[in-house]
Nucleic acid binder design. Structure first.
Lengths: 214, 214
DNA sequence: TTAAAAAACAGGATTTTTCCCCTTTTAGAA
DNA sequence: TTCTAAAAGGGGAAAAATCCTGTTTTTTAA
């Protein structure tokens, strides 16, 4: 193969066009596909006469986001390597993207030389992880482990109760909404208070909003 | 002048380099400066032998962000037009940026042809506002006007009470913290409930967190 | 089928919150 | 100085929340 075929999936049209131009400057690479979202990309892939070897995938996109698209791609075209290329530096998002099958995770503020290095590494070694990603993953381990373990031990019905608790409804009204006796709701509250280590409904709401449980 | 000198200020190095390449393809434009943050840009500007006519300014940057940098630039070099080029679509941020003196506001997902049109408009007509920005500003007028007027009628002591209410402290404990009688705190609560149009402390906390009062 | 676990429910007491309507004190303007 | 508005404080009661200690029902697994 005389060049490496690359696909770009990014709804930031201006950026993706500019990126395509930059890549095309090096004859070693060729942008064979450039789509604005996962939906378009998947559609275009079935009609493509040349499959990309590497896909540069944004995460926040309309119709089909980067995580879903990567998941789809990993199942059907495992030989195509996905590199996440995004501004998203949220730990949870990074994890989801890597779980979906991304072989690399690049932030858009990186140096261009590192960018080409990433493409080479993904092709030759199978993956490319920057120190940044490593740091982030480490951070999750030491910082968010507690809260995520707390959240994971919540039962479905308890999570539902938490959502209702993040409102101006009284417990009696919440019981109605959940089709339960007020006393059962009392029980949920007691259990959730203990699990989340809070002392009042306000503490519960504060926790829920901090960790997106609302 | 045989070309339009342009400056790029963006910490997303990969993107800004790619953007620079794209702009350079048209001999009508020339990227004379490319800096990763406001601090660097201001520094470089004082040593520059050619001033840019248009500055493409990102907002979220380390050291000196786009809003501060635009403010600085508007005061000292009012002839240099700033176009915000960012992913930030938060209403408040748009307002701040326009207040700081930006003549245009572009999102990075725009079409390239519109991008060049924006540069031309800013130079020839002085400004360029997309429908998007207009929509957003309109939205603020009709949606956020209420909440901001609500917030503005809160007294200092009431705002302080709200901060304390966003905790697991009881009102008695809050009274201690604020060096007031519990009954006075009762009064603050009643007043705040009416102003914020909430029915319970949970509603108060929800409002405070939504509008950053906590 | 049966024992164990989880979910639902309950009585009752205390504390906290919420909601009235009211008085005193303080600060600032006329 | 005096009037007035704002801030601070209060009594009392109803509603809601919290915290116990239980029981009954349903699910699950052996």
């Amino acid at each position: 193969m005389e060049y490496i075929p690359i696909a770009i999936v990014d709804d930031h049209t201006l950026m993706s066009k500019a990126l395509e131009n930059m890549i095309m400057e090096d004859a070693k690479y060729k942008v064979v596909m450039n789509n604005a979202n996962g939906e378009d990309f998947i559609q275009a892939l079935s009609n493509a006469n040349e499959l990309p070897q590497v896909v540069l995938m944004d995460i926040n996109m309309p119709y089909k986001n980067g995580i879903e698209t990567t998941q789809w791609l990993s199942e059907r075209f495992p030989e195509i390597k996905v590199i996440a290329l995004t501004m998203e530096d949220d730990e949870q998002v990074i994890i989801k993207m890597l779980k979906a099958g991304a072989k690399g995770y690049l932030l858009k503020d990186m140096q261009p030389y590192l960018f080409f290095q990433a493409i080479e590494n993904v092709i030759n070694k199978g993956s490319f992880y920057t120190d940044f990603v490593t740091q982030k993953l480490l951070k999750i381990k030491i910082e968010d482990m507690k809260s995520s373990s707390i959240i994971s031990e919540l039962k479905e019905r308890e999570k539902e109760f938490i959502k209702w608790a993040c409102s101006e409804l009284t417990y009696k009204e919440i019981a109605d909404k959940m089709c339960l006796s007020p006393k059962t709701v009392d029980g949920y509250r007691d259990a959730v208070f203990i699990k989340l280590e809070v002392k009042s409904r306000v503490g519960l709401v504060l926790f829920a909003l901090k960790y997106g449980l609302e």
